[in-house]
Simulated assay, not measured.
Amino acid sequence: MYDPAQLRTFLAVSQTLSFTQAADRLGVRQSTVSQQVRKLEAAVGRQLFARDTHGVELTEDGEAMLGFARSILEANERAASWFRGTRLRGRLRFGASEDFVVTRLPEILEGFRRDHPEVDLELTVELSGTLHERLEAGKLDLVLAKRSDERPGGQLVWRDRLVWIGAERLRLDPDRPLPLIVFPPPGLTRARALDVLERHGRSWRIVCTSGSLNGLVAAARAGLGVMAHTHGLIPPGLAPVPERAGLPDLGPVDFVLLYGKRQRDGASHAAAERLAAAILAGPVPRSERFRAEDRYI
């Protein structure tokens, strides 16, 4: 029998690849996270994480434990809900950035609808900047989006790095303005890309603007230009621009959960917390190039 608290800690570390970030997410000390992981590894008799002074990575046994941990915690939650005799009801207005919708979020939402059929779930898919604005306006109860420099809060779900991507056959002329494929304002990746280029003195021109990720991907596949995108979510047919192109580094990006400030009733708040827990426990993409600078203690 595995301790649910240890399993939740394991999932937090596996998603952030950081003992420090996992501690922040769980609201405990880093030493507590380390202790919980040690106890779980002792219980299974296997090493779940490979850690050194440079970072943290899941071992093969750790990858296997991911599915078991989620199944055990989901079963515990279903049993607890059954014997509490309570069923979630009400309306939940959930907003998600288009980046995340193309990953495993549909599977998470399907499970939520199955477990809580009486919750009226309203899904809004938008740019992260727009979702932040709607949340502040009280039009959403829960948001999964990129963290904004202007709105630095939120509960970390996943950390990655923004990279320049384009068609593999694309060739960039360093003496000509960089052709850009971007979301319209208030897209956060757009703002980051333009700011970085301006700070590095690299000239640019916008060759395509679309509010749809599919539209941007189609333009990039056609070789019209480059776009800033999360490394762990690179669409098929596109690849990171080689370092020899000399494009400036775009830096890290955090996907976070944010709650609405004006919950209209207790039901919507309870539903938001339940969906947030499912997202935090669910699988998320992890960039192979980004490793959290963290040490196992």
Rank of each mutant, 00 (worst) to 15 (best):
D3K: 11
R8F: 03
Q15D: 07
T16N: 11
S18K: 06
A22Q: 01
A22G: 07
G27A: 04
G27Q: 05
R29N: 09
Q35Y: 13
V37R: 00
V37F: 06
A42G: 10
G45V: 12
D52T: 09
H54Y: 13
L58C: 11
E60L: 14
E60G: 11
D61G: 02
G62I: 13
E63L: 14
E63P: 00
E74A: 13
N76I: 03
R78F: 01
A80R: 11
S81E: 12
S81L: 09
F83K: 07
G85D: 03
R87L: 12
R87H: 12
L88T: 03
G90Y: 10
A96H: 09
A96N: 12
S97W: 04
E98R: 14
D99Y: 13
V102Q: 14
V102S: 14
P106Y: 10
P106L: 11
E107T: 13
I108E: 07
E110I: 08
R113S: 08
D115V: 00
H116E: 05
E118I: 02
V119S: 08
D120Y: 08
L121P: 01
L121S: 01
T130A: 15
H132P: 03
R134Y: 10
R134D: 10
K139Y: 09
D141P: 06
R147P: 02
D149Q: 08
E150Q: 09
R151C: 00
P152A: 00
R159F: 06
R161P: 01
W164G: 06
I165S: 01
G166A: 15
G166R: 06
A167V: 08
E168Y: 04
P174E: 03
D175Y: 07
D175A: 15
L178N: 08
P179D: 11
P179Q: 12
P179K: 12
P186L: 11
D195F: 05
D195L: 12
L197N: 10
E198I: 07
H200F: 14
G201M: 13
G201R: 13
V207E: 13
C208T: 14
C208I: 01
G211K: 07
G211P: 04
S212I: 05
L213G: 14
N214V: 09
A219Y: 12
R221C: 08
A222S: 13
L224Q: 15
A228M: 13
H229Y: 15
H229W: 15
H231C: 01
G232H: 11
G232A: 15
P236R: 12
G237Y: 09
A239T: 14
E243T: 08
G246H: 00
P248D: 04
P248G: 08
L250H: 07
L250I: 06
V253R: 08
D254Q: 11
V256L: 08
R262I: 01
R262F: 04
Q263Y: 01
D265E: 09
G266S: 08
G266W: 04
A267V: 04
A267F: 10
H269Y: 04
E273G: 00
L275W: 01
P283Q: 00
V284H: 15
P285G: 02
R286E: 01
I297D: 12
